[in-house]
Amino acid sequence: MPACSQCSQVLKRTQKTVTCRTCEKVFHPACASLNAADLQLLEDTSRAWNCATCIAKCRSTRGDDTPIKALDPGSLYDKSQREVSNPILKELLDRVKVIQENQSELVNSLKNDISELKKVISTWESLINEHSKTISLIIESLSNISGKFDGMVAENEILLKRVANLEAQLNTWEQDSLRNVVEIHGIPFKSDEVLETLVCQVGLGLGVKLDASDVDYAYRLKARSNLPNNRPPSIRVRFMRSNLAREILEARKAKRSFSTRDIGFSDSPNYPIYVNESLSALNRKVYAKARELKKNGKLKYLWIRGGKIFARECDGSERILLRTEGDLHALQ
């Protein structure tokens, strides 16, 4: 590969070079004191170039008194004074100017867009900061509400327990007030019946001596449509003394069979007569649901004693006192 005639370095194919028209020596443009504009001018005008050595020889041959100097590359292309004579070069320069103007306009437009974008970003940052503060306040409020709600839940649980205890106490008082009361089931209704007399007949049939003065009050309960075989409504009786109620109950338990024939009802079908303790409204509800559990096999034994409801799940299991509906949930 050729070498530069000035610096003797190898000239690469990828490098730009300049060749002297006279001696045909090859140089680096920089070694020949040529810049990029000079090279472009030589290429556009197709002008030949001579190295400094050949120019000095040419001047010596002409007898030129001017000191021998290398060609000033700036003299080949003076941007401030030279008029471009080549139309193609002029057109290229005009296009470059247009491109520069367009670039300037584009740069100004981009600057304006960037400025507007910065304003928008600044606005959004302010909005985001405001929203962040609002969200923080909402989270704080929710935290406070959650704490209050937890406190209310705990307080509600305490109140529910108190209500349950009060309900149990009220039920106990109500049931205690029914110690003198029994309910007689199975006696047919007659239009001319005197209930106090019927109660005395029941006592006589059970071996308990009763007098009308022993009965505080007696009345039939409302008829229920769900009673089987159109059974007559029950008779609720309140005795003057609680021991009379216990005697009637114990006598009925001791007598295996007791029916309307035993109290002189020979002119009507024979119906069994039952005597049960009278239950409070809550105990009635608990007893009805307990009977459903017994029917479904959840309970094996179910009975009432002293106004209290007891149950056993199976033989040998512990006796369970059913006071409220909550006591039934564990059995379901």
Results as ranks from 00 to 15, higher is better:
77 Y>T: 06
82 R>N: 13
46 S>H: 07
67 P>S: 04
64 D>N: 00
39 L>Q: 00
53 T>L: 14
47 R>K: 14
44 D>V: 12
77 Y>R: 01
81 Q>H: 01
61 T>C: 14
43 E>K: 08
54 C>W: 01
67 P>K: 03
76 L>Q: 03
37 A>I: 14
83 E>M: 05
67 P>M: 02
75 S>M: 11
46 S>Q: 10
66 T>E: 13
85 S>I: 06
43 E>Q: 10
77 Y>P: 02
49 W>S: 03
48 A>E: 13
63 G>S: 06
40 Q>H: 15
51 C>N: 07
84 V>Q: 03
84 V>K: 03
55 I>V: 13
62 R>V: 08
36 A>H: 05
48 A>V: 12
80 S>N: 04
74 G>N: 13
68 I>L: 15
48 A>Q: 09
40 Q>G: 13
69 K>Q: 12
61 T>D: 10
68 I>R: 15
65 D>P: 10
46 S>I: 04
53 T>H: 13
59 R>G: 13
36 A>N: 00
54 C>Q: 03
45 T>L: 08
83 E>G: 08
71 L>V: 09
38 D>M: 11
60 S>Y: 03
39 L>C: 02
76 L>W: 00
84 V>I: 07
82 R>I: 10
86 N>W: 01
74 G>E: 07
62 R>E: 09
52 A>F: 08
55 I>D: 12
86 N>E: 15
48 A>S: 11
77 Y>I: 02
44 D>H: 06
44 D>L: 09
76 L>I: 04
43 E>M: 09
76 L>N: 01
80 S>K: 01
53 T>Y: 12
41 L>K: 07
44 D>A: 14
42 L>W: 06
63 G>D: 01
39 L>T: 03
72 D>P: 09
72 D>W: 05
81 Q>V: 08
84 V>Y: 06
67 P>T: 05
61 T>A: 11
52 A>L: 00
52 A>G: 01
35 N>S: 07
66 T>D: 08
72 D>K: 10
70 A>C: 14
56 A>K: 05
63 G>I: 10
63 G>P: 03
49 W>Y: 04
83 E>Y: 05
84 V>L: 08
48 A>T: 14
47 R>F: 12
38 D>Q: 11
36 A>W: 00
63 G>L: 10
82 R>D: 14
58 C>I: 13
50 N>V: 13
78 D>T: 02
73 P>A: 14
36 A>D: 01
83 E>C: 06
59 R>Q: 15
74 G>F: 06
85 S>A: 06
74 G>C: 03
64 D>H: 00
38 D>L: 05
80 S>Q: 05
71 L>S: 10
63 G>F: 08
67 P>R: 05
37 A>C: 12
73 P>V: 06
80 S>W: 00
47 R>E: 15
66 T>G: 13
61 T>N: 11
62 R>I: 02
52 A>C: 09
35 N>H: 02
66 T>A: 11
72 D>V: 01
78 D>P: 06
37 A>H: 12
45 T>D: 09
54 C>P: 04
41 L>S: 05
46 S>C: 09
46 S>M: 07
45 T>M: 12
50 N>S: 15
78 D>G: 03
60 S>P: 04
40 Q>E: 15
56 A>W: 06
49 W>Q: 00
60 S>C: 04
42 L>Y: 02
50 N>H: 13
65 D>A: 12
66 T>H: 09
67 P>I: 01
61 T>Q: 15
